[in-house]
């Protein structure tokens, strides 16, 4: 089932075309990796999808509903969750409270003024932390969490809004290799189990080629290749532009 449709998406900053007529579709249960050299337009592409930026041209629809021109808040409400490259949990709150805030927002209870936050959705929050494997830090302030744990809390925060589409900006950046594999495997399991679709920007090629169902390679704002990991790996154009051809022969 097609969940996300992107057509002719374009954005320019002054004279520079950051994203140039990008189009793709995404089905539920699919993990799509967005790769490309720095400056290829990956982050701009993301910000066009999540409403942080407004496209100059193009269409984005989620299950038939247009997302163009909506605020990040509206887009989130329509079922687009996101994780930030630098984990941006609310630092003064515990992991559990972070999730409770998101759940309160999701259930439109953020303006309640009397009953203590403690009693709202604590079980749901714990269940989510449990699911991403960090229930043991539920009562620690996010400002003091270890980086790997924070990344997992970040994932739980994105899931708390019951998204249908997950946008993840470098979900494993800054983590140790073993943790990276575990986190992305967990993400993949969640995507399957909940019937979500996920788009992620990633620089770790082990993560990308090990776990993505499909890869889109961007270069200078355009789609250079779109296909299975095997197809992308063997694409000569991709190897020339993204991986660089070393005098040693094969891609770097």
């Amino acid at each position: 089932m097609t969940l996300l449709v992107v057509e002719g998406l374009s954005k320019r900053f002054g004279a520079m075309v950051a994203v140039d007529r990008v189009g793709f579709t995404l089905a539920a249960g699919e993990m799509l990796a967005l790769i490309g050299p720095n400056g290829a337009g990956k982050t701009t592409c993301f910000n066009l999808l999540n409403g942080q930026l407004r496209p100059d041209a193009g269409r984005v629809t989620l299950e038939g509903v247009s997302l163009v021109g909506l605020t990040p808040r509206r887009i989130w409400r329509l079922g687009v969750g996101r994780t930030f490259q630098v984990p941006a949990a609310f630092a003064s709150m515990t992991a559990c409270e972070n999730l409770q805030v998101v759940l309160l927002s999701h259930h439109r209870r953020a303006f309640r003024v009397w009953r203590s936050t403690r009693s709202w959705y604590a079980a749901d929050a714990l269940a989510l932390l449990e699911r991403v494997g960090v229930a043991h830090v539920a009562d620690q302030r996010c400002g003091t969490l270890a980086y790997g744990d924070l990344k997992r809390v970040e994932l739980a925060l994105a899931l708390a809004g019951r998204p249908r589409l997950l946008l993840m900006d470098e979900p494993t950046a800054g983590m140790a290799p073993a943790d990276r594999q575990a986190l992305i495997a967990l993400t993949r399991a969640l995507v399957r189990e909940r019937g979500l679709a996920a788009v992620f920007i990633e620089h770790d090629m082990d993560v990308v080629f090990g776990h993505a169902d499909r890869i889109i390679v961007l270069d200078h704002g355009r789609i250079l290749a779109d296909g299975s990991p095997a197809a992308v790996r063997d694409d000569a154009q991709v190897r020339a532009v993204y991986l660089g051809t070393s005098p040693g022969g094969r891609g770097q």
Binding site: M205, F209, R233, L243, P247, G248, G249, R250, G251, Q252
Partner: peptide, 14 residues
């Protein structure tokens, strides 16, 4: 490294 790019492949390549 150019003569024997194994380390580069191990740590940089796809």
């Amino acid at each position: 490294l150019l003569a024997d790019p194994t380390p580069a492949h191990d740590h940089l390549a796809l």
